[in-house]
Amino acid sequence: MDVPLIELASVKKSFGPVEVLKGIDFKAYAGRVTALVGDNGAGKSTLIKGLSGVQPFDEGTVKFEGEDVHLTSPRQSSALGIEVVYQDLALCDNLDIVQNMFLGREETTMGTLNEAEMEFAATKALQSLSVRTVKSVRQKVSSLSGGQRQTVAIGRSVLRNAKMVILDEPTAALGVAQTEQVLNLVRRLADSGIAVIIISHNLADVFQVCDDIAVLYLGRMVASLKTSETNRDDVVGYITGTKSLEEVN
């Protein structure tokens, strides 16, 4: 494993007197799926918001592709190739798949929308992920299932040439079959050379699809493990705090 795509060192973030991130070290690699797990309040969301530039970190260094960067705005993170797929997906129900995938970045020729070019690029992006679950790229998003919506949201990040995609609870509201579809999609996303970070509470999903597991506990990174070298009980131990305490003692 060579240079990580992104490397955080002693990153801190406070909201007033409350220190939420107490010096985090974290790495994610291109082509690998990294799980970010931890109980509620561990600081997962704060870490993600820092990476996406929504709430910049207070202290610490961030290296992206080996270079020092300061993530201070969503626009800047996006320009680097960091895309976040939020849990609520942020899709417009009244628009179709192509329109949603290009929302805010529409292609135009002579001031008018170039629907043909957008449709082609969107279709290509979905095909690169071997998506077979959508019938037509001109379907309204309102007619799509939860898994298909997730697909559209992930496809949008591919379209934006993301180098790193952060997925916030991608399978939270999905049934068994759709979860399977989305996890396959995540695997293909990583196989195409993108660094994927998944936030999840579902350890079954984590063990099925992730290469690395990073565990947050009360604002500290208590463990960075390879999935192949650990097991569920250990991870649960780290998440609940029993495991790390054991080690300290």
Binding site: Y86, D88, L89, A90, C92, L95, Q99, N100, L103, G104
Partner: peptide
């Protein structure tokens, strides 16, 4: 149309 459909999604799309 996007703002009419989902203002929050529109905002996040820039």
């Amino acid at each position: 149309y996007a703002v009419g459909g989902n203002p929050e999604a529109a905002r996040r799309s820039g």
